[in-house]
Amino acid sequence: MSLSRRGFLSGTAGASLLLAGCGSGGASPAKQTSTPGFPVTVPGQLGSTTVAAPPRRVVAAGYLRDTDLALALGAELVLSVRNQSFAKGLAPWAKLRSGTETAYVTDGGLPLEKIAAAKPDLILAADDYSLAGDWSNLSSIAPTLGYQAGPGKDGWPEMTRRTGAALGKPDQAAALVKQVRDKIDGVGKAHPEFAGKTFTFGPVSTNSVYTINSTADAAATFFSQLGLKLSPKAAVLPSSTTPGRAQISPERLDLLDADVLIISYDSPASRATFEANPLFESLPAVKRGAYVPLDQTIGIAMAFPSVLSIPYALDVVAPKLATALKKGA
């Protein structure tokens, strides 16, 4: 997926930084001693990351998935980026340990002084879409794990494996990847009615309508792994300024029609307004009941997939798809 960190919903998906119990008086990084499996070196597009010993103070500096992976792999987070799309700044599938203190700063770029004061021995930044500019500063503070293929281009299995390698937990990372793939396969097998059905999916806000036009989009991959196929009408649409997504004019809502129509909304008000549009009401999929409305949280879970967000999205989306396709049959 190639998608600007601020480009998920109508070109904007803000982020802020959350300080997780890591004042400057916190413990210093552990003395580096010889440990089986270390030092470990993980190659990346901007440079290799060499970690000398098991990390005990980890900063998740990327947009969303660095935090997910740190939590999933049991890293000791001391500083983490948080997404303003969520009321508490943290995705519902990501749970910080009990008693963690938090403090927010504005989204004006990475607060390098705070990161340095946290005394990390590893910085996770594979989900930092501004990493080309941040790399030298971050890597001067601590070993920094960036992306392999490019901003937003590493798949969730690769991100999991690389983070696991840097943390010295390659087996745990491999197990997580297998667990999530097994869950995806299980949902597909439980719903053979999904196979071959066409879909359209995209975010709708008060002022804009988008739909996926690329099978390489992360959300398109999410649905295709369940057996669905991107609508041919959507696949030929020109991309907007957000790669993988086409903007739909108010007069061409017919381009959204498919065996099942899936839309995520940025607010209940946007949904109410859009659903009251006569052109929307006249779509065959809507008339059949083959329509799945989702909130922004689920849209983000699919657009920025991780070993934590994918199971969360599957549990919500799969039953809704099954109901919609049954109605539309």
Rank of each mutant, 00 (worst) to 15 (best):
R6C: 04
A61G: 01
A30H: 07
S2C: 06
D266V: 07
A258L: 05
L73A: 03
S239Q: 15
V307C: 05
G7N: 12
T67P: 06
R6W: 10
S208Y: 09
A190G: 15
Q179N: 08
D266G: 01
V204I: 15
R6L: 09
D171M: 12
G146R: 01
P29M: 06
W93Q: 10
N137T: 04
R271I: 07
G227E: 11
S224W: 08
Q179L: 06
I300M: 05
S249G: 14
E193H: 07
S267V: 11
Y291H: 12
P29S: 05
L77Q: 02
L279I: 10
D134H: 14
V59W: 06
L73G: 04
T200N: 01
T242N: 15
G196A: 15
V317M: 14
P151Q: 13
S16H: 10
S282Y: 00
G37C: 08
A218C: 12
I263R: 09
F222D: 00
Q32K: 07
T221P: 06
E101C: 09
K287Y: 09
L237D: 09
L167Y: 00
L255E: 08
G108E: 10
R245T: 01
F201R: 09
K114F: 07
A116C: 11
G150R: 12
A258E: 00
A322Q: 14
L71F: 10
Q84C: 04
A149V: 07
L9Q: 05
N83R: 06
P238A: 15
V260W: 00
D217W: 05
F223H: 02
T102I: 03
R5M: 03
V317Y: 06
Y291F: 14
F199I: 11
K95C: 06
G23I: 04
S214Q: 03
P54K: 04
A220Y: 00
K197L: 10
G202A: 05
S80Y: 06
N213R: 10
A322L: 10
S264V: 00
S80P: 00
P36H: 08
K153E: 13
L19H: 03
L253G: 01
E193D: 13
S2L: 14
F8W: 05
G26M: 11
R5H: 00
L79F: 15
P39G: 11
A132Y: 04
G150K: 09
L96P: 15
R271F: 00
S239D: 15
S267R: 10
D217K: 05
S231N: 14
R56W: 05
Y104M: 07
V51M: 06
P143G: 07
M1Y: 03
A103E: 07
A15F: 04
G47F: 08
I300D: 06
K197N: 02
L253D: 05
L230Q: 02
A301I: 14
D259G: 00
V209T: 12
G133N: 12
A190E: 14
F280W: 10
I123C: 13
S267G: 08
R82H: 11
